[in-house]
Every structure is written in structure tokens, then in C-alpha cells.
Amino acid sequence: MPDQSNDDQSTNGQPKDEDLAKRLERLKSNLDGPDGMAAEAQRDEQLRAQRAHSKAGIAQAFRLSSEFIAGVVVGGGIGYAIDKFFETSPWGLIIFLLLGFAAAVLNVLRASGMVAESEMSLKTVQDQQKKVDNRVSDE
């Protein structure tokens, strides 16, 4: 009998039902286990998050170079305009090109998330955190 190889005591009808129940339970635990359906759903979720993350990653890659160039160009432009109007050549260009470079580095750091997006949004986040903390301490 094929059943006997599976379970040690399946001689009459009663134990066979028990056997079935046991197997059902095993199936259920397998489904919920590390390779089960729940785990699969979780993996799906992770994959979706990863995909969203990679989309944001490509978008960020597009940002970085243009943020840097824009900073230097705007700094140089302001310096050049100041030199034109106040005839301070070449000091306006020198100073504002350097400031533009600093602004460009700041832009890139912000775009890559190494520096807080801006002082204001940082404060809102901190305030929200404070509110959450207060609520927790109230309870």
C-alpha cells in the first residue's frame, strides 16, 4: 500500500482520517512557511518596491549632472552680469563662479539625499516627529 510508506500506523479507517488531517496541516504550514504563498506575496511586494526604487534611481541619475551644471552656470552668469553693470571685472566673475560651484555641490548633495532637501522641509519633518512623540507620551 502506498499509504504505509507515508505513515507508520494506517491499518483501519480512523487513523486514515487522522493521517489526512496531519497532511492537511503539513500542507498549510508549508504554504505559510518560508517558501509558501504568504512569503511569495511578500516577495512580490519587495520586488514592486525595488522596481519603484530603481525608477526613482534613474530619475535621480538624470538630475545630478544637470543640477551641477546649472549651479555653475547661474553663478557665472550672475558674476558676469555684476561685472558688466558695476565694471568690477574680473572680481564678480571670480567670486560668483566660486559661489556657483559651492551652490552646485550643494544642489548635487541635495539631489542625492546626502543633505536635507531644504531647511523648511527638514523642520516640518522634525515637527511631525515631535507631534508624534507628544501623542505617544500623552497616551
Binding site: S66, E67, A70, G71, A103
Partner: peptide
């Protein structure tokens, strides 16, 4: 003063980078 100047330049560079990125790509 220096930080404010840098922040202003950084703010002014936003429309430039926004438009140049789209157009250049």
C-alpha cells in the same frame, strides 16, 4: 552672508536645471 548667497544661487539654478535637463535629453 556666504551661505545666503549660495542658497540664492542654488534656488536660481532650479529653473535652469529643470529646463535644460528636459530639453537636452
Amino acid at each position: 552672508p556666504v551661505v545666503v548667497l549660495i542658497e540664492v544661487i542654488s534656488f536660481l539654478s532650479r529653473p535652469i536645471s529643470l529646463s535644460v535637463r528636459l530639453f537636452a535629453n
